[in-house]
Design a protein around this nucleic acid. Structure first.
Lengths: 243, 243
DNA sequence: ATTAAAAATCGACGTTTCATCGGATTTTTG
DNA sequence: CAAAAATCCGATGAAACGTCGATTTTTAAT
């Protein structure tokens, strides 16, 4: 996840940056996460139970095959076979291979946001929330390596994901981050600097580690390496002076 | 460019970290850059002048079409037509679409390394060299946006570039960076910390900005934004204490 | 329980694109 | 200038994508 830290993101945030510790902003924060966690839902709902099962089988099969062969080398016929259906049935569910590829990561993304929403419920400080957020995202990548490989190495950077529901969810990842950076500035624990730039350093550094791990399984312990790099950057930030 | 900061890279470097200011390491540095800048050369050299022209036309056409349509949507027939040759002629030069896609960025990559090699010739400090390196890479992406789009958003993250000449060159980008970080540590201007982690923060943050620019043309001035984020990270590093 | 409509499935088939091959054409060599 | 080498291309094969109409299964009303 996590690109375009510098772009978009207006309305949602500027509103409650600055008024801290009033109790109200935290409601907005909770709502914010709620919206994000429930956004990734497919437009077309299937009517029959059999269909829901089939859809799930397709998604599982697609994840396996895409992660193994890469999107462009993967064959629709293979995915259909793996899902135990015919090729033409698959096309009842997804109008093209690209469509399917972009839909596969969505459910996991929603699951990650939901996990975070629950884990962060009893944390209040920006530092704690942000550290948890980035640590969890590294850990989630480790636990769901096939998914992470598909998202980070194939889909995330693709220009063609623009104008897609998926792009919205990926952007959400950055929105949360910038929100937390702004919260920390408001709390006075971080210097008042360009929050997009700050977010870029955090997410860029972490993603670099995650991508390296996906490609080479180095460093061995992704969870530890992820936490370490984020903590180092946070300490660096806290030593910075306001410009 | 610039992935896997954490991986590979052994023999070349460890040798002359520590013995600084002896004059000799700088020879090694120059050789290092020399090798890197001349590495990206095609194995099969064309004999006739006509062929060399055709090859160049194919590469130009491929860059345009790949950048416009993306690798997977691009059609070989379109590239051939754009290059003014027949489809089958194109296959005389490249055995597959993938092959072509991976070869396109190589010449530019070599050109970047060569530009840097010349520009850095009269710089001696690690800080100056590193700042120049990363600033130039942001600037090169801005100047060659089609190429950058292809490399950063389609090829660089691809798992399937592994075991390719291209991957070697991409790794070279990181090697140079880690080398400079180690040089700075040896000079005593940066604290003695995990150089791979340091490099990951630098390249991760910068790439984040470059990728955002490629996707959204935000921030407007990539050159400025690139220098700023690198300078900020360097200042942060210089304020760090040795662990 | 029956049955008609809706939803889901599948095999057969058309289309597109990648890639190959043998021979024609151009360039180089002696 | 002729033979050899390099280059080019039209025709064709192969593979994967995607569509359509007929068939089966499920749902829901009587």
């Amino acid at each position: 996840m996590s690109v375009n830290v510098t772009a978009t993101f207006e309305e949602t945030e500027t509103s409650h940056v600055g008024n801290l510790g009033k109790g109200l902003p935290d409601e907005a924060w909770a709502d914010f996460l709620q919206v994000i966690a429930s956004r990734p839902k497919r437009a077309t709902e299937r009517k029959q139970d059999r269909s829901k099962r089939t859809e799930q089988q397709i998604l599982n099969a697609a994840l396996r095959v895409f992660a193994r062969d890469g999107i462009s080398r993967a064959r629709i016929a293979d995915i259909a076979a793996e899902a135990g259906i015919s090729t033409s049935t698959l096309y009842e569910y997804y109008k093209s291979k690209e469509d399917l590829a972009y839909d596969v990561p969505m459910s996991h993304l929603a699951a990650f946001f939901e996990e975070y929403r629950q884990a962060v419920a009893d944390k209040s400080g920006a530092r704690e929330r942000l550290l948890l957020y980035l640590s969890m995202s590294a850990d989630y990548a480790r636990e769901h390596a096939e998914w992470a490989r598909l998202l980070y190495l194939e889909i995330w950077p693709s220009v063609f994901v623009n104008d897609t529901d998926l792009r919205h969810s990926i952007d959400d990842f950055s929105r949360v981050l910038v929100h937390l950076v702004n919260q920390g500035i408001a709390e006075g624990i971080w210097p008042k600097r360009n929050p997009y730039q700050t977010a870029a350093i955090l997410v860029g550094g972490l993603n670099q580690v995650i991508i390296t791990w996906l490609l080479y399984r180095t460093p061995r312990n992704l969870t530890k390496a992820g936490s370490e790099i984020v903590e180092r950057i946070l300490r660096m930030m806290e030593a910075e002076t306001t410009e």
